[in-house]
Design a protein around this nucleic acid. Structure first.
Lengths: 193, 193
DNA sequence: TGATGAACATACTACCGGGTATGTTGTCAA
DNA sequence: TTGACAACATACCCGGTAGTATGTTCATCA
């Protein structure tokens, strides 16, 4: 499950197999094609985010408070499972560019749809927060993109330091979420915890 | 000059040639290898940004005002030359992952160094703005990453609408820069134009 | 205990794509 | 007019890789 660092086409099945201490035969015994293997990693990566964020989106608090929790969970997940998230990212890219085969197309299609539902969790929340007067931005679509670009960004630039503690990561996440929150015109007021 | 949409390894020289209405021979007549072709596109893309932003970084105004102009120029460039910017992005990614051949490595290396100098223009400016009390953020490195993630993001999600005017793009850029500025803890005060 | 099938490994095929070697055409200078 | 060279096109080579076909081992169950 680890061809998450070279990219889809740059990674051969043999690479993956070697990494697993196995051979190609094993992989093709479990997955019908390379695309299916990729889709499985994609799905797994998304599942991390979904299962940690979705419950938070249904809390009883004010929208902005829910958003803060969701954003923290999302960003933390991006850091903790960044290898998977790179695959997810590339999957989205592949879909936008137009995946090669038709089967691959709709396999990716369903995953993208799932991702869409995930994004909607955030979109409805920030729209609600805006109605509450707790955020201000003009076009929702753009605000959403900018928000995700910030929350997702550690996938690309974060790399673990030696002897890094959980509170180090917490600090990172703080700064990320704070950036996004202020970007969305959020009142940072009250307290951040 | 147009293999900027499929990605490096997903694009064959024949693809590029077909796009140009030419053949492989023509391309290999002008470039010694695929990597060199890629490097040239990379360089061209960066040049757009550099030449439009670098002069602005030397203006006489207050740091935050310089930053606003730089950020606007950068974001506008990302939108206007996004095909090139995708190549630049992938070039950086390739470098981080470890380019295949050694020659490719240091070819990319010099380009990355150039890009580093470009990023420094922004870094020094936001640090100066912070000293001026016009911005507030904790870790500069992270702030820089978050800032670029927002300013660069249209490269990935923007796609031109039919009948789009310059002022539409200006509005887009406004929202992007505003997001980044607030994210950096900037006083949006005065006016934005 | 022998048959069966899952869970692999090994060997092989087919194809694609980077790179090269060799044509072909036009231009320009002597 | 011809030789030389730039600017391509065409034909080919060859390594790498997705996918397949065929072993081989081991557990389970009749």
């Amino acid at each position: 499950m680890c061809f998450m660092e070279r990219g889809y086409s740059a990674t051969s099945i043999d690479d993956v197999a070697r990494r697993l201490g196995a051979t190609k035969g094993r992989i093709y015994h479990h997955y019908p094609s390379k695309a299916d293997l990729f889709a499985d990693v994609f799905r797994t990566g998304m599942q991390f985010s979904f299962s940690s964020v979705e419950p938070l989106s249904k809390g009883p608090e004010r929208a902005i408070e829910r958003w803060k929790k969701m954003a923290r969970a999302h960003a933390t997940g991006m850091i903790r499972t960044r290898a998977f998230q790179r695959v997810v990212w590339e999957g989205v890219e592949l879909h936008l560019k137009g995946a090669t085969t038709p089967e691959q197309r709709d396999s990716l299609g369903r995953l993208i749809a799932h991702r869409e539902r995930y994004a909607r969790l955030f979109r409805t929340t920030i729209e609600e927060a805006r109605r509450d007067g707790d955020m201000q931005f003009s076009l929702t679509g753009i605000a959403e993109e900018l928000m995700f670009s910030a929350l997702n960004s550690p996938v690309f630039w974060y790399s673990p330091r030696a002897g890094e503690t959980d509170s180090d990561i917490k600090e990172l996440v703080d700064q990320i979420v704070s950036f996004a929150l202020r970007g969305l015109g959020g009142k940072e007021g009250s307290k951040n915890e």
